[in-house]
C-alpha cells in the first residue's frame, strides 16, 4: 500500500489536505478559520482532479503549431484537458462560496460581536432570557399598578 501511495503521491497529498481542510471546516470554532478550511478542502479536491489529468511526458493542452500552418493534434501529445476545465469551474464556485460565507460571518459579527457560532448561541439564549425576564417584570408592574 505504501508503495502505491508513493506512486500516487499527488493524490495522497490531496486527500491529506482534504482531511485537514474538512476537519477545519467542521470543528474550528472561529468562522474565518472555518472558511479557510473550506478553501483548503476545495483546493485539495482540485489538486486531486488535476493530478488525475496529468500524463507523464505530455504537454499542456494548447495546440502546438507544426510549423507549416497546421496543428499537431495527436492525442498522445497533450495531457487530459477535462480535469482542467472542471477545476476552472470549481475555482469560481469556491471563490463565490468564500465571499458569501465571509459576508455571513461579518453579519454574525455585527450582531453578536463574535465569530464563534457556539458563543453566538450562548449570547442569544442569554439575551432571550433577559428579554423574557424584562417582559415578566413589566407584566408584574402592570398587574401591581
Amino acid at each position: 500500500m505504501l508503495g502505491k501511495l508513493f506512486l500516487n503521491h499527488y493524490e495522497a497529498v490531496a486527500v491529506i489536505l482534504f482531511g485537514i481542510g474538512m476537519t477545519n471546516l467542521l470543528l474550528q470554532r472561529n468562522l474565518i478559520k472555518k472558511i479557510i478550511g473550506l478553501n483548503i478542502m476545495d483546493t485539495a479536491v482540485y489538486l486531486f482532479l488535476a493530478a488525475k489529468g496529468f500524463v507523464e511526458g505530455r504537454a499542456a493542452p494548447i495546440l502546438i503549431s507544426n510549423g507549416s500552418g497546421g496543428w499537431l493534434n495527436s492525442s498522445d501529445l497533450y495531457v487530459n484537458p477535462v480535469p482542467a476545465g472542471l477545476v476552472l469551474t470549481g475555482i469560481v464556485v469556491s471563490v463565490s462560496v468564500t465571499a458569501f460565507s465571509l459576508a455571513l460571518a461579518l453579519k454574525l459579527y455585527e450582531y453578536y460581536g463574535t465569530l464563534n457560532i457556539d458563543e453566538a448561541l450562548m449570547k442569544m439564549t442569554e439575551e432571550q432570557v433577559e428579554l423574557e425576564t424584562t417582559i415578566e417584570k413589566a407584566e408584574e408592574d402592570v398587574l401591581a399598578s
Binding site: 482534504f18 481542510g21 471546516l25 460565507s101 453578536y112 453566538a120 442569544m124
Partner: peptide, 27 residues
C-alpha cells in the same frame, strides 16, 4: 435578524461539507 444569520451560517457550513464530499466522490 441575528437568528437567521446564525441559522444560515450553520446551514451553509453543513452544506459545504456535503458539497466537498460530493465533489471528491465525483472525482
Amino acid at each position: 435578524g441575528a437568528g437567521t444569520t446564525r441559522a444560515a451560517i450553520r446551514y451553509l457550513i453543513m452544506s459545504l461539507v456535503g458539497s466537498g464530499l460530493v465533489m471528491i466522490a465525483i472525482c
